[in-house]
């Protein structure tokens, strides 16, 4: 039940960064899913596609790296690692 809210938070974060960086387009988004984050890559992808509709993130490629180690300090988390953007150059 919390996926919706988690992913909305991520999309908002991505939009903020995109705005700060004067990005015109998000090419790809890379996330890490902890082994204990209670969400599978497929499930995450579905939610991501749904939540990004109508935002600058819509259509971005989604790369998911799963942390398989349950003892990893971030094993319970979902981490936004990086985003690739097209940047408007001002001259």
């Amino acid at each position: 039940m919390h996926e919706f809210s988690l992913i909305k938070d991520l999309i908002r974060k991505i939009s903020t960064i995109a705005h700060e960086q004067h990005a015109s387009k998000i090419i790809s988004v890379t996330v890490k899913l902890g082994a204990l984050s209670h969400i599978s890559p497929d499930h995450f992808r579905d939610h991501f596609v749904l939540a990004s509709r109508g935002t600058i993130t819509e259509g971005a490629r989604l790369n998911i790296n799963v942390i398989a180690d349950k003892t990893d300090p971030l094993a319970q988390d979902i981490i936004l690692e990086s985003i690739d953007v097209d940047v408007q150059l001002y001259t």
Binding site: L6, D9, L10, L74, I78, L80, E81, S82, V85, V87
Partner: peptide
Amino acid sequence: MKSRTIKVDYLARVEGEG
């Protein structure tokens, strides 16, 4: 137009639901 990668490392949080 120029592409670049922005490193973020942000932890997703459950948002307030109210």
